[in-house]
Design a protein around this nucleic acid. Sequence first.
DNA 1: TAGATTGTTAATCGATTAACAATC
DNA 2: TAGATTGTTAATCGATTAACAATC
Lengths: 213, 213
Amino acid sequence: MVGKEISQAVIRRMPRYYRYLGELLDEGVERISSNELSSRMQVTASQIRQDLNNFGGFGQQGYGYNVKYLYEEIGKILGLNEKHNIIVIGAGNLGQALANYVKFEKLGFVIIGLFDVNPALKGTLVRGIEVRMLDELADFVKDHKVDIATLTMPKEAADSVADLVVSLGIHAIWNFAHVDLQVLDENVVVENVHLSDSLMQLSYNIVKSHTKE
Amino acid sequence: MVGKEISQAVIRRMPRYYRYLGELLDEGVERISSNELSSRMQVTASQIRQDLNNFGGFGQQGYGYNVKYLYEEIGKILGLNEKHNIIVIGAGNLGQALANYVKFEKLGFVIIGLFDVNPALKGTLVRGIEVRMLDELADFVKDHKVDIATLTMPKEAADSVADLVVSLGIHAIWNFAHVDLQVLDENVVVENVHLSDSLMQLSYNIVKSHTKE
DNA sequence: TAGATTGTTAATCGATTAACAATC
DNA sequence: TAGATTGTTAATCGATTAACAATC
């Protein structure tokens, strides 16, 4: 059954709600109204209520939202109630940086494997994880549950690696390669992080702010 | 003078146009119609024409767009005709990974300095750039033109470092710390890269694709 | 009960798509 | 000139905001 489709605009905001609720929880705040949250987050209270009601009625009239409950519910919506095993393909600087990120693990994303094609890296340890060669991936996937494949290799190689991971049954790709992956399989979800696009957007805004003055 | 405001939705698409036009240029394609580009990029031809016409009439009726010309014009819109000097504050794994990214340099973004507060890192060389201590930043900024400060430190420190760089006259921040920076100065532009938000969005889509089946 | 605040419907605003006159 | 394709206006669609009845 397919529920009513929730727009990407809403989904992009959910992690931010999750973060703010986490902070409130740390501060010991027990309940919060859409109005208070609104002034903290600089979004309208109306949007908060609309966004949340895409997923269910988490609040209570006259009371507001219970912080802990809402935090946990959003966590579930985002799939954070389950562990996700991640592999990183491309053990260069970025791949290693990602493997070293402790924060991800706190959210339930555990990096269990690092792969590369460069024989010089074989066996290198990154945060206790040894770098394997890409041709060992098929065997690795047989022995380990892999939920997400992170791609950090140069763009020229990205499409063929994406094909490989999909053929091995991995259904989620976190793509840092600067291409639009040609993944035809409908069941594969792809999330792109295009760092140079982000830098160009910043650069655009710099130009704009100069012409304003 | 302030021109009509161009929406963020449009600006987010510009780097993608730039990328596709670069590819066409490499392929030796001289001209392209909004229709051909449309089928390559999987967006509507109408949107392409609308987007471009926010910035000017770059095409020619009956002909289409000259690839080289349009590529260069979008480059100018994105500020890529000028070099940008970048410093990275936080010389941990991510900071070092960013400093090692050759791709940015090709786009005119040159990393000229690396800073940290950890004395153990002092003097370490990353791609020929030595890591300096954060208290040397004020002097560094006097001697070097710094266009963009990249923040990769833990979120707890991000706000005070943002204040520091702004007080030193840096007007653009590329923020990787997982907070919404409280920069009050209207003239400072901030671009956020929230990697864990991205991972959570992926995770959401994984959950969704499972419930669909 | 009265007051507060949600959940939800209606109104507005903005972004995308369609259509077509202008023009190369 | 005829054909092609832009630039731009008009129509549609979707997302945000406002309003308010439901209800705790």
